[in-house]
């Protein structure tokens, strides 16, 4: 057993958490070594000195005090909770009123501002509008006459046969029909 271990055991000794074998060896060291013996006496003396610090007696009414405090704290908690709920209720009412007012004002202002902004057209604008309508009508009519706008159309319908005759002067521009007899 080294000296560090002996010192540790000396300081632990009064609590009695030492094995019997260690206790025997420790007693031998204390008997044989003056330094260990002195430390042992000091350690024992310290514990005895500390016992001189006497316990205090709590007041007799500690239970009454305790339950009073519990009741007080519960009441305080209930009071604060009630106040919190009151504030919450108050705020909720005001918030709802503010939202409703905001919505009503919004709707009213939209109505007021929209009725005063009807579109007014000048005379020139009206003419342009009419011209645009004419053009639209013209291009949407499915007859060849209005399409003359886009170029010379020389096709003349044969009222008797119903075949379309092709103007020879422009025949080169047209794609000739394929003669399948040449291929087969």
């Amino acid at each position: 057993m080294d000296s560090k271990k002996i010192v540790e055991l000396i300081l632990e000794y009064p609590e009695g958490e030492i094995s019997e074998a260690n206790k025997m060896e420790l007693k031998r060291h204390i008997r044989e070594n003056l330094g260990y013996s002195e430390l042992y006496e000091q350690s024992k003396g310290l514990w005895k000195l500390m016992e001189e610090w006497r316990d205090i007696e709590p007041s007799d009414d500690y239970l009454v005090k305790f339950w009073n405090r519990v009741t007080e704290e519960e009441e305080a908690r209930a009071h604060w909770f009630g106040r919190f709920l009151g504030i919450l209720r108050f705020n909720l009412g005001w918030s709802a009123a503010a939202i409703v007012t905001f919505l009503v004002l919004g709707v009213v202002s939209l109505y007021v501002f929209n009725t005063g902004t009807e579109m007014t057209l000048s005379e020139a604008d009206l003419k342009d509008n009419e011209a645009l309508i004419d053009v639209e009508k013209a291009i949407s009519t499915e007859s060849s006459k209005p399409l003359e706008l886009y170029g010379p159309w020389n096709e003349l319908d044969n009222p008797e046969t119903g075949d379309a005759s092709v103007d020879e002067t422009h025949s080169s521009d047209l794609i000739r029909p394929v003669d399948f007899g040449d291929i087969y």
Binding site: E8, L11, E12, E41, Q42, G45, L46, L49, M50
Partner: peptide
Amino acid sequence: KAYVYRGRMKLIEKLKPHLRKDK
């Protein structure tokens, strides 16, 4: 154990004069 050991050593040092006197 280490806390008790160290604490006790320190207390012995601090209260040594009183321990001697008490002894």
